[in-house]
Design a protein around this nucleic acid. Structure first.
Length: 784
DNA sequence: TCAGCCGTC
DNA sequence: AGATGACGGCTGA
């Protein structure tokens, strides 16, 4: 409100300033050089731009209000009555679940007041003040009252002292006794707690507070250490006393005062801490009437979450206080969204969370910078890159990777724009982020061309982080790359999740050494960190141009161990099956393969299932799995493993629809043959089209595989005569209608690049592929 | 999704 | 306080 007045005034003054600037011979202006004057004018201009934007925003709010009022005019008495009934039914429900049994404390450092005091008494600056952040008082004080207390930024924290209060009842007096640390600032706080008046003659101790963190010392002779009962204070057992004690200790520790609120929930506690600020506290007793009394005349603006705009909108409806908010509940339910009006209702009833929820995981990370106008594309791109670099560093500190990159721009007229793009891969490095951000920036530059883009702020944000689970998949992807197709085909892995997670472009590849260099490094990493028994599906694709590599991970399956089966890996180089419990051994084998050695001695061909075929990537694995099942008729020793996979698979009956969304249609460029998403999509779609039929046919879900193969009696996934299969890699039409053969062909195409890299110019058959001796071709022909 | 806001510290 | 930076969340499309 005041801002707006200022804005108006400022706008009026601008003209004056400008006129003054143009004529620098005015009285008092002599001695100021033109540059300075121009600076002043520039500032004023900037100011006016800012305020003009503020006015514009204000007008937008006014329009929202107007809309709302129009809506309100249309509300009939009938509707209102109906709404009243419904809302009141909810109120009864809410009242029934009102919980007054918790004691929540909100502690708020009086930092602002401390700053003001310091400003007024500059000599205070000389004093070393241990400015403690809340997380520090964490550890040192607050945790004693609530080990799970929640710091909110640097100067606020919530505590749930419900349990502490119970325990405290039995505490002896000495456990509630605290000593004064002498100080020179004399202050008597509002609660009459004469904290330091008596001791202000003493010297300021710069050493840490003696009694902190060691209550046991108090018993055995604190007198000897100069701590006498006389300069101590004993706190009672009530909530008020606890909070006084906390504030006392904070002040002793930091020499800064804190305010606090005590209430049955966080919202109320926060409002309470504001009540007697600075250096005071307030409590709402845990009774419904006390809560409602507190709220009765409380302006809604005092409520956390109600800001300038909401305040103004509600004011337009004649709502200023919380009790008015309650009175208008029926109308509000008709004018606002469900989330909003329910929030209003909670506020007006004084309901809030009665326990401290742990902070959820971070959802985004960003960096932004304000500067004086930048209007050349080159500078803007450079800046953008710089921001990406900073952000990448921050992301890497927390080990985060995200899929959405948002570019924020504020032009010189203070108009803010955000442009976001979500990519298939998750990004975390400077290059990856910049690759996305620069496109967004380019679009914006283009959009104003031929005019320059004149900006005063740029920011980059990354969101859509991978969950911990997803991160594991990615990290371990190389491990699973080594695993054989024995295990679960990727298509059944978490089919309810977005397939984006399975396709990861790796733009680093081009400038981070060869494919195998990366893989070797990754493998070494994994062998250190990863136990081979846990992992789940994740596909890792290279970008469009590079050769694709596929990795497949397996579900966490304890059955595997129980069934006495060994881990089976397929070497990504020679495609020989490796059976070993020892990753290092496997690494040695692969290193050997990579360096061209023949390392049969370290290879133990799997004895578990000699009928299995080696399968270099996921498509065949997908296939093989089914072949195996059909052939073995579920008597395989790994049946338990496979079944456990099926459970999660079959639980997604609506996977058809999901898959429809999962793989978004992309630009033609991204549908290049080398991108396998198309074929995968085809497979996915086919697999998921008839989930019911599949499960009806046979409880064994592997039946669907038979169908996909087209080798069984079922026709569902037989490739029809009219649907010729075209290899997505080499783009050539394949004669076979058998997906097994087709997959095999695709494998070969996909691995062509790799094999060539390995064998250095050795020819590779791409067109025809002999199914029967395929593995031998791989391992035999190319591995010596 | 995304774009634009709102609100908080 | 004056006009940042960072973040989460809501809302309408």
């Amino acid at each position: 409100m005041d801002d707006m007045k200022k804005a108006a005034n400022s706008s009026c003054n601008d003209g004056v300033l400008l006129r003054m600037g143009l004529n620098d011979n005015k009285a008092g202006m002599q001695g100021l050089d033109k540059e300075k004057i121009n600076k002043i004018i520039m500032d004023a201009t900037k100011g006016s731009r800012f305020y003009e934007n503020e006015l514009k925003k204000d007008q937008q709010v006014n329009q929202r209000i107007e809309k709302m009022m129009q809506l309100k005019e249309k509300v009939t008495t009938q509707q209102l009555l109906k709404a009243q009934l419904q809302v009141d039914r909810l109120v009864i429900e809410l009242e029934r679940s009102r919980n007054l049994s918790s004691t929540i404390v909100h502690v708020d450092m009086d930092a602002f007041y401390a700053a003001v005091e310091m400003r007024d008494n500059p000599e205070l600056k000389e004093k070393p003040i241990a400015v403690g952040s809340m997380s520090m008082l964490v550890r040192e004080i607050l945790a004693e009252y609530d080990p799970n207390f929640m710091p909110m930024g640097l100067d606020e924290a919530y505590l749930n002292i419900t349990e502490h209060l119970e325990e405290r009842l039995n505490w002896p007096e000495d456990r509630r006794r605290f000593f004064f640390n002498t100080e020179s600032t004399t202050r008597i706080d509002k609660d009459g707690m004469n904290m330091s008046a008596k001791f202000n003659e003493g010297e300021v101790s710069s050493s840490p507070v003696l009694f902190e963190d060691n209550t046991s010392l108090m018993d055995d002779g604190f007198e000897q250490r100069g701590l006498s009962v006389e300069n101590s204070v004993v706190f009672g057992t009530s909530a008020e006393e606890v909070v006084k004690e906390i504030r006392f200790r904070i002040e002793q520790k930091t020499q800064l005062t804190a305010s606090a609120g005590i209430a049955p929930n966080t919202m109320l506690a926060k409002m309470c801490s504001d009540r007697n600020k600075p250096n005071g506290q307030y409590r709402i007793s845990p009774e419904r009437q006390a809560v409602l009394d507190f709220l009765k005349d409380l302006p809604i603006r005092k409520v956390p979450g109600i800001g300038k705009v909401t305040e103004k909108m509600l004011k337009a409806l004649g709502i200023v206080t919380c009790s008015e908010l309650y009175q208008q509940r029926a109308l509000l339910s008709l004018l606002f969204s469900e989330v909003s009006w329910r929030n209003f209702l909670d506020i007006s009833l004084g309901l809030g969370s009665t326990h401290l929820e742990k902070d959820g995981e971070r959802k985004s990370m960003s960096t932004e910078r304000t500067f004086s106008e930048i209007n050349t594309a080159e500078d803007q791109y450079n800046l953008c890159r710089e921001l990406c670099r900073d952000l990448a560093q921050d992301l890497q500190k927390e080990g985060l990777k995200g899929k959405t990159v948002t570019l924020k721009l504020k032009n010189v007229n203070f108009e803010v724009k955000t442009r976001a793009s979500t990519v298939l891969s998750s990004v975390s490095t400077e290059e990856e982020i910049f690759a996305v951000a620069k496109d967004l920036l380019g679009t914006e530059i283009d959009s104003v061309a031929p005019h320059p883009l004149r900006i005063r702020l740029m920011g980059v944000r990354v969101s859509g982080f991978l969950t911990e689970e997803e991160k594991k998949y990615q990290q371990r992807s190389i491990t699973s790359f080594l695993k054989s197709g024995k295990e679960i085909g990727f298509l059944r892995l978490q089919p309810e999740k977005s397939n984006q997670e399975y396709f990861t472009k790796n733009s680093e590849a081009s400038h981070r050494g060869s494919f195998f260099d990366q893989k070797r490094a990754a493998r070494q990493l994994n062998s250190e960190n990863i136990s081979p028994n846990e992992s789940r599906g994740k596909q890792l694709f290279h970008d469009d141009k590079s050769s694709a590599n596929f990795v497949e991970e397996r579900k966490k399956v304890t059955d595997l161990q129980n069934s006495n089966a060994r881990e089976i890996f397929t070497c990504p180089v020679c495609f020989e099956e490796q059976s070993s419990n020892n990753l290092e051994e496997l690494n040695r084998h692969i290193d050997g393969c990579l360096s061209g050695m023949h390392v049969k001695d370290t290879v133990e061909i799997s004895k578990n299932d000699s009928s299995r075929e080696n399968t270099p990537n996921f498509l065949p694995q997908f296939k093989n799995e089914h072949v195996d099942e059909r052939e073995k008729n579920n008597t395989d020793q790994l049946a338990g493993t496979d079944q456990s996979a099926n459970v999660s698979d079959s639980s997604t009956n609506n996977s058809t629809e999901k898959f429809g969304q999962i793989i978004p249609d992309k630009s033609p460029r991204e549908r290049q043959p080398s991108n396998l998403s198309d074929i995968v999509r085809n497979m996915c779609m086919k697999q998921c089209l008839f989930p019911k039929r599949i499960s009806q046919d046979n409880e064994d879900h592997f039946d669907k595989t038979e169908q996909i193969e087209g080798t069984s009696s079922s026709h569902f996934f037989d490739t029809r005569e009219d649907t010729a299969l075209v290899c997505p890699v080499c783009n050539s039409e394949q004669k076979t209608t058998n997906l097994v053969s087709f997959n095999r062909h695709v494998d070969v195409c996909l691995n062509k690049g790799l094999i060539q890299e390995l064998t250095e110019k050795e020819d590779f058959p791409t067109k025809t592929y002999n199914m029967e001796n395929s593995n031998r071709v791989f391992s035999g022909k190319y591995m010596h």
